[in-house]
Design a protein around this nucleic acid. Structure first.
Lengths: 242, 242
DNA sequence: AATAAAACATGACAATTGTCATGTTTTTGA
DNA sequence: TCAAAAACATGACAATTGTCATGTTTTATT
């Protein structure tokens, strides 16, 4: 029990890199030299609760990578309703897309969920880097493609599934993307209120609360925001697709 | 009335190209030489009603470009419900995305809407082309980015808007993307049944019919599938965002 | 031109989800 | 640690949309 993993600097011979940076897919595929160059052009920024990384309508000036924590991408309608389109996790890229071309502005708001750290780089430098580096360009194409598939899958779920199924899908996918095993089940590492869930699946907060109460009664999940545990992932996935 | 536009071959000095090919953005940015090479690796195929270009689950082997006509991208759920995620038009790319990497399979079905013609190319050749040609890679990144934004906008609409608004959004965007001016309004060049509309906005056919009946009564639209005319685009757009 | 097959249409009713009101519990921050 | 603010919870009722049944009109096919 008292055995702790050591500080792993010994196993990281590519020292100059701040810890974790060489786990980011896009950086990993660069040559050591290119990576240095890119890192020298990137700055790290921390954000906390209540702040914005950028807001819908702001001009797009930077390309971003999530280094630590989670970031939510939100759009809102004129009458104040909001929806959360995506939770970005470490390694995820954002503003690697079209709004960065031509002088467009951000199509949505990027908001930290708790404390986060992001790397960013002027979009011009980002484009130059991609042109110099076919491997990086291919990686961005692969990444954007997978984001597109994911977004379309989400649209499908919103178009065809019931509120129950949508919420079950959400919990299942979060469990797989950001869950840690625990004796009682899979705990989500992202803090997620009922309100957050509601925004992610396009229902009202009340509906999300009622459905979660039902899931809890059926022993599929336990706990609330700070400590949300998936108790029966297989059954949740079944429910999502039934 | 009897005056017709001439066959425009005279205005197309880049002759060797089949008509229209040099209007496709991705091909346009290539050097004449690269374009020849790419075209030599592409084959053109025609499809008609009732056929499939590929189906959900088929292995992804080719990269595609729509040359003529419209193609719909469809996903279906286990219980037989379908949703149409996107209508591709000439110049649109498909399978330029993640499913082409690693041996993945198509996440959805591609179905012609009427007669279409598509160009296709082995995905290996496509990747090689992108690696050789940074301009092409950048164009694909730009394109995928805009597709991602569009898909997320669609998800937002599905999550937050009423059935009326979703339908109004659909008609407005189609009018802008594929409409031709006519004395009575903007006629859609894609043939679109009420059922098609229903699948595109995530409602039942009956609901789509009822809403369209209302739109017709309010003089926003006229006609059905074969000849669908938008009579009041501004008001339709207003309705979409109210 | 005749016939079959889609597409369009409408009503009655049911189910799902939203709205509003109100109250309790938990979390956060001074 | 205490107060304020979020988050969670629940009931009653309303609105939206789906379901099913049935019939007409339009479009496609031989």
């Amino acid at each position: 029990m008292s055995k702790r993993p050591k500080k792993s600097s010994a196993e990281q011979p590519t020292s100059g890199l701040p810890l974790g940076l060489n786990q980011i897919p896009l950086l990993k595929i660069l040559s050591a030299q290119d990576r240095q160059q890119v890192l020298s052009e990137m700055t790290e920024t921390r954000y906390g609760k209540g702040q914005y990384i950028f807001r819908e309508g702001d001009p797009t000036e930077y390309f971003h990578i999530v280094k630590e924590g989670s970031v939510k991408c939100v759009k809102s309608s004129l009458d104040g309703k909001e929806c959360t389109l995506k939770v970005l996790m470490p390694g995820d890229l954002f503003c690697c897309d079209a709004s960065a071309f031509d002088g467009a502005s951000h199509p949505g708001t990027a908001q930290p969920m708790g404390d986060v750290s992001v790397l960013r780089m002027k979009k011009e430098a980002y484009f130059k880097m991609l042109r110099r580096n076919p491997d990086a360009a291919m990686e961005v194409i692969r990444y954007l493609g997978s984001r597109l598939n994911e977004a379309q899958e989400k649209a499908k779920v919103l178009a065809l599934d019931s509120a129950d199924q949508r919420l079950a899908s959400l919990l299942a996918s979060l469990a797989e993307r950001s869950g840690v095993r625990e004796p009682s089940g899979i705990r989500l590492t992202v803090r997620l209120t009922r309100q957050d869930m509601a925004n992610m699946v396009g229902v009202t907060t009340e509906t999300a609360i009622r459905i979660m109460a039902r899931f809890k009664k059926d022993r599929l999940v336990t706990g609330t925001a700070a400590r949300l545990v998936i108790r029966d992932l297989p059954r949740l996935k079944l429910l999502a697709s039934t």
